[in-house]
Computed example of a mutant assay.
Amino acid sequence: MTQPLQYLPAILATVFCLAVTPVLAVVSAPLTEGGPVVVVAGPGADLEAIVKASDGWLVGVSRAPMAVMGMSDSANFEDRLKENGAWAILDGRALSWLCGEQA
C-alpha cells in the first residue's frame, strides 16, 4: 500500500503550475499598441505623475499601491514611462482578461 504523502510533491507542483500559468501569460503578453497598459513602480512613487510626465492619462478609478492603468495616444509611451521611473509595463487588456473583465 502506498502512503498518501508520497504524492504530495506532485500535487504541490500541479497546484503551483495552475496558479502561476495565468500570471506568466499576463507578464509575457506583448503590449497592444495604443491600448491600456499597467504601470508598475516602486513603493512611494507618484504613479500619476509618472503617467502624466509620459504624456498619458490614468484609466479607471481603482489603483493598486504600486500600479495604475494608463493610456496615451502618442508614440513611445512605454519608453517614456520607463524613463520617468516605471519598473514594468504590462498589457492592460491581458490583465483585464485575467481579472475577468473585457477591455
Score class of each variant (00 low, 15 high):
A10N: 07
A49F: 03
L98K: 10
I50G: 12
M1Q: 06
E48C: 01
M1A: 15
S62C: 05
A64I: 00
L58D: 07
V27L: 14
A86P: 11
L8F: 06
V37Y: 00
V23M: 14
F77Q: 02
M1C: 05
W87N: 15
M69R: 13
P9I: 04
E83P: 00
G35R: 09
Q6P: 00
A29D: 10
F16M: 12
T32D: 11
M66S: 13
L47V: 06
D73G: 14
T2F: 02
L31N: 08
G85N: 12
A10C: 02
E33F: 00
L90T: 05
Y7W: 10
K82E: 07
V38A: 12
A45T: 15
V23D: 04
V40S: 07
K52C: 00
P30N: 08
L5T: 12
M69Q: 14
C17R: 06
L31K: 08
G42L: 04
L31M: 08
A94K: 04
P9L: 03
L8R: 09
G35M: 08
E48M: 09
V15I: 13
V15Y: 04
V51S: 08
V37N: 02
C99L: 11
V39C: 11
L8M: 14
S62K: 14
T14Y: 03
A10F: 13
A94N: 04
G56K: 03
G92H: 04
S28V: 02
D79N: 14
S28I: 02
A13P: 06
L98A: 15
G60C: 09
L5G: 12
V59L: 09
L47C: 10
A75D: 13
N76E: 05
D79L: 11
A75N: 05
P22E: 05
L90A: 13
R93V: 03
S28T: 15
I11S: 06
L5F: 11
R93E: 12
W87T: 14
L5E: 09
K82T: 06
P9A: 07
P30C: 04
A45E: 12
E101M: 12
L58S: 08
A49Q: 15
V15M: 14
S74I: 04
T32A: 10
S74L: 08
M66Y: 09
P4N: 04
L5M: 08
A53W: 00
A75T: 06
A103T: 08
A19Q: 06
A10W: 13
G100R: 05
N84V: 01
Q6H: 04
D91K: 11
E101A: 14
S72P: 07
M69P: 01
E78I: 14
T2C: 00
M66H: 13
P43W: 04
V15D: 02
P36I: 04
N76W: 00
Q3G: 07
F77E: 01
A45F: 03
G70A: 15
E83F: 07
P43A: 15
T14C: 12
V68G: 07
L47Y: 06
S54C: 09
P36F: 01
V23Y: 13
P65C: 07
T21A: 15
P4S: 11
A88L: 15
S72A: 15
T14P: 00
I89P: 07
V68Y: 10
L31P: 05
L81Q: 03
M71A: 15
Q102W: 10
P36K: 02
Q102G: 11
T2S: 07
A10I: 09
V39F: 06
P22A: 09
S54E: 04
V68E: 05
A25R: 05
P22H: 09
G44W: 09
L98I: 01
F16N: 01
V26P: 12
